[in-house]
């Protein structure tokens, strides 16, 4: 009977869970969690710029840059594992690379059912965006992200600190309540901050997604693709068919919709993950024991869904672009 229950190190999981909860209560009593300072822009890890570019200006190392490096290393490891598994020649990869391969196969089949003959062209964007965003979102779950970093002295919203060992300090709650406004003290700048909470990353991805959609549309339909935006033929025949002016206006609206796509792509991902991070901060401060675990599970789900939605929308917009617009569909599909 007992053998069927899952165990770690011979201890039944329920006792392990209980012990962790008790330890969490003690930890929260000794060092009460402090609500970190929340800001949208990524924090700089150094006061001196790494280098200065002529036009763009100084370039600082930010904590989202370290997250980018971590995500790239993880992706390289995945790439290496899959490459090694495929190179070994077996038709069915095993283990971790098998899981990655199954995930990619699901994405590929989805692309195939939507994009048809443009699958081979569109799929790499879908797969790359999904994998990158997934890995980036899940770096949020690594312990120490957002919580280990440099203590910065600030003049307001500061917290007092306490020495733990010779070189390691921790923020503590100020005496007499949590109101830390207008108090000089320290604030924490994490070494790593989830890359999705950096608007530069999400805007870059959105720009690439929308731009490559136009490129693929142009490849599929030729110059006729751009008549979707500036409908010259409708304007030419406006004397024969006065309703053509509406078609022309709709074409201009398409341009607006492309730009709004950039906005919605970037802020959807940013908003979800940033809100998730803030939620974890707040919950961790209010109910430091057990509750953050549940919200971490929610963040696993949200990270996966957002990665999937980002990639899937890119894929769907790209396959819509290959199919042309209105009457062009007849010309190019047959």
């Amino acid at each position: 009977m007992n053998n069927t229950r899952p165990r770690i190190l011979g201890i039944p999981n329920r006792y392990l869970t209980l012990a962790i909860i008790v330890l969490g209560i003690f930890a929260a009593r000794v060092y009460a969690p402090v609500l970190p300072h929340i800001q949208v822009a990524p924090e700089r890890l150094s006061h001196q710029p790494l280098f200065t570019l002529p036009v763009i200006g100084p370039f600082y190392l930010t904590n989202t840059m370290t997250a980018m490096v971590i995500a790239d290393i993880i992706l390289l490891l995945i790439t290496f594992a899959v490459w090694k598994a495929v190179k070994s020649g077996s038709l069915v990869p095993q283990g971790f690379s098998g899981a990655i391969e199954a995930f990619i196969e699901v994405l590929y089949n989805m692309t195939e059912s939507t994009a048809g003959k443009w699958t081979k062209k569109i799929f790499p964007y879908f797969g790359a965006i999904t994998l990158l965003v997934l890995v980036v979102n899940w770096t949020e779950l690594i312990p120490g992200v957002d919580t280990i970093g440099i203590l910065e002295p600030v003049v307001e919203h500061g917290n007092p600190i306490e020495q733990v060992t010779s070189n390691i300090y921790t923020l503590i709650r100020p005496e007499g309540g949590t109101d830390s406004d207008h108090a000089a003290g320290f604030t924490l700048i994490g070494f790593v901050r989830t890359l999705s909470t950096d608007l530069n990353f999400t805007v870059a991805l959105a720009l690439i997604s929308v731009f490559m959609t136009q490129v693929i549309g142009f490849q599929a339909l030729g110059p006729g693709y751009f008549s979707k935006f500036i409908n010259i033929s409708a304007l030419w025949n406006v004397f024969n068919k006065p309703m053509g002016i509406i078609d022309f206006a709709v074409g201009l609206l398409e341009i607006v919709s492309e730009i709004s796509k950039i906005l919605s792509f970037s802020f959807r991902l940013f908003g979800n993950i940033f809100a998730g991070t803030v939620l974890l901060f707040v919950i961790g401060t209010l109910v430091p024991v057990l509750a953050p675990s549940l919200f971490l599970m929610l963040e696993i789900f949200v990270g996966l869904i957002q990665a999937f939605v980002f990639g899937m929308l890119t894929m769907v917009f790209m396959s819509l672009a290959t199919k042309g617009h209105g009457d062009h569909e007849e010309q190019h599909d047959h």
Binding site: S260, S264, F267, R268, G271, V309
Partner: peptide
């Protein structure tokens, strides 16, 4: 995605 875009404009 389109419905959510409205919420994102609010955000």
């Amino acid at each position: 995605a389109f419905a959510e875009a409205v919420a994102i404009y609010c955000l």
